[in-house]
Design a protein around this nucleic acid. Structure first.
Lengths: 336, 336
DNA sequence: GTGAAAGCGCTAACAG
DNA sequence: CTGTTAGCGCTTTCAC
């Protein structure tokens, strides 16, 4: 059951390899090849179960029909779901996807980029780490199709598909204000990554627009590597110092989960003691009683926008720049 | 900045392509090439930033250094985590991985298999659906390295790495018996998939061995597509009919979660009203008060065993069969 | 309408 | 120690 090659088919059919190649690539159109030959060749292809060798074809055409997907962490629900959609759409369009996780490590990100270029991927979808800006610029210079995902480098003329973090935080904060909360605390991570920064901005802007005091003390910032226990303690201290706080807005779901833990530990109830909302949805938030109101990312949409953008970049060689901010979705439940 | 080829390097260095090829493949060993030449060529390679074209190499050698990973659903935490480890180990060994999800659909599984063969993957790790047994057999006949994952076809001489579901359920049930529970209910899905079947078997065997009545009525079986609401109702009916039940053993985590919901809805407390354990761990189980005791899958271990198995199958052409059942891990928390 | 032949970039006999 | 050369399987130009 050795692999049959195009040549075998040609021999069997008594035609040249050219003819067979034209037929399998549907270039037999405009009457180039006689219908009879097409039929005969196709029959033999079926019989012998011939499948063109993708690698040879790639070598010849210079296209690998492979795209590279680099995410922060594929084992994370958000990225896993994203990947699934991307893979699906890519497959539908005849592309394979090879993927890898950076774990937010610049060095690893760079290595992965290199590995994928070696593999001659035709384009990239990348969740960039802070340190690979230069590498991305290099990619662009080489006219490789690239779309950044989840975060981007403001100012860089590179395509991206990200959530509109500012507006998401802005809307949720406004919602809280309208509900009557007067002292909304924002609990976040101090991060160079612009998504979190923009969530903070959205929160502050909303407070300003509603003429509520935007005292810095209502923002609690952790550093990235603060332990769970320390966060719990910090929340306690923060809340004891700021007794007027009546609502808690967590900037990510894993922070929100710690918040939930704080509430249970201290026998506090939602929303009686504090209005409680979080950025990013999570299984747990739906499950809790009361369920937690969140500003959620439209995961499917983000994924299709990203892969669509990449596919159009690959198709049209004119290398435009596609930059999209996708609106977040407020999901009202019962925690505020 | 056009790609430089091996030929360019050879010309630049004033040597033949063979020499360069030998050098980049580290076959310059046993004194074949003079150290001086090696140094010179390497220098030029660095300068020109030459990277061998993987596709050409694949075409020539017949090896794609790509493996295919087919899981049930990459957006599921279990498979996502598995994938991450597999990808990591594969990369370390110079392999790329292309992946896809079957969503438990036979047709889709078959298409993915075909797509990946087209891509000339060197081996497969597959979470099989019920209906692709024949396709797997075909793969084996063609001597393609294959390792089945998570489930397998008993009797088929195909490599696999799966959890020891029987023993996991057996041990948990025994543990419950030893704790003094007399009427342990087992809540599961009626499925053709042998993992769940074996969990049930483990439960029943343990009861028999401990000479506890194994009346069929202590097993509650849902069909795969029963809705959440219907499951909740069915649990209620079941428990009303079987008042003596004192412990609940759920056969998967998503069933366990519904179980938790049932408990909260009905103001039942764990473990006072019912001892409560589940197969498969979950974020929620760790978080709850009391936290739920589970029999967990050692995810990392399963993944490394699977990729290791595949890699050794690829390496040694003698096509052995590697079949492993990995022991599950009882995680004692406070729910029983 | 169809075929001959070149060549994508690389590896590996084989020759010297 | 190093070079010549024949392909891997396919697409594509050009010729008939």
């Amino acid at each position: 059951m050795a692999r049959v090659s195009l040549k075998d088919i040609a021999k069997e059919a008594g035609v040249s390899v050219t003819t067979v190649s034209l037929i399998i690539n549907n270039k037999s159109q405009n009457g180039r090849i006689s219908a009879a030959v097409v039929a005969r060749v196709n029959k033999i292809i079926k019989e012998k179960n011939f499948q063109p060798n993708t690698i040879a074809r790639s070598l010849r055409t210079g296209k690998s029909t492979t795209i590279g997907l680099i995410v922060e962490d594929i084992s994370n629900h958000f990225f896993a779901t994203i990947s699934k959609t991307i893979e699906l759409v890519a497959n539908e369009n005849g592309y394979k996807v090879i993927y890898a996780s950076t774990d937010n490590d610049n060095q690893k990100a760079r290595e992965l980029l290199e590995m994928m270029q070696l593999q001659q991927v035709e384009g990239f979808i990348i969740t960039p780490t802070i340190g690979i800006k230069a590498d991305i610029e290099e990619l662009i210079k080489q006219e490789k199709p690239v779309v950044l995902f989840d975060r981007y480098f403001p100012g860089l003329p590179v395509s991206y598909v990200v959530l509109d973090n500012f507006k998401g935080a802005y809307d949720m904060t406004s919602h809280l204000v309208k509900k009557g909360y007067k002292n909304i605390a924002f609990i976040t991570i101090a991060s160079e990554m612009n998504q979190l920064q923009q969530r903070l901005n959205g929160y502050e802007q909303a407070l300003n627009d509603h003429r509520l005091a935007n005292s810095a003390s209502l923002v609690l910032e952790f550093s990235y590597d603060t332990s769970r226990e320390d966060k719990l303690k910090a929340i306690k201290t923060f809340l004891q110092k700021n007794k007027k706080v009546d609502a808690l807005f967590f900037s990510t779901n894993y922070l929100g989960i710690i918040g939930v833990e704080y509430m249970t530990n201290n026998k506090l109830t939602i929303p009686k003691d504090y209005g409680f909302v979080s950025f990013d949805d999570h299984e747990l938030f739906k499950f809790l009683k009361p369920a937690i109101t969140v500003v959620a990312q439209p995961i499917e949409l983000l994924a299709t926008e990203a892969i669509d953008a990449l596919l159009t970049l690959i198709k049209k060689k004119n290398m435009g720049v596609i930059q999209k901010k996708i609106p977040a979705k407020l999901i009202h439940r019962a925690s505020e």
